[in-house]
Amino acid sequence: MTRRVASWLAVAMIGAAAFVYGAVDEGEPRTDSDRAYAISNTIGCPVCQGQSVVESNAPIAKSIRETIALRIDAGWTDAQIRAELRDSYGEDVDYTPSSEGITILVWILPVVAFAGAVAGLVVVFRKWKREGDLEASAADRKLVEAARALADED
């Protein structure tokens, strides 16, 4: 085993161990106010221009924040709280677009486009590989000579 391989093995093992420990261990428990913040941050204020209820100081934003805190105290789940807010204030207070109807496109289109781009690149690279190296034509060589001559003059 070379030193390089040993070094990479050590990196991989220490990195994986620390990462897995940090990812699995739950650490400090999430407080109610952390939960309330996480929900409020993704709920739009119904009367403000594009601000979440966290950002806004409008009375209705404050009241929604209070509602969220109360529901958490009462033991509701995040999904229940969101559903109630959508029912009371309309679908558009929820910053997370639903996956129903045409709204699902907003989730799917980027994935499809990205997959298409990657597939296209794979096809192009395979084609290039199959065709092998390009041979420089006489015209190409002439161009290079001309450019070099120009470079030497400078």
């Binding site: 739009g44 979440s52 679908e91 558009d92 929820d94 910053y95 677009p97 639903s98 109807g101 709204t103």
Partner: peptide, 18 residues
């Protein structure tokens, strides 16, 4: 949100979670 509103009249938001 503009597209959805134009297509089927719903008002939706696409925000930070997305």
């Amino acid at each position: 949100p503009l597209i959805v509103e134009a297509v089927d009249g719903r008002t939706i938001s696409v925000g930070n979670p997305y």
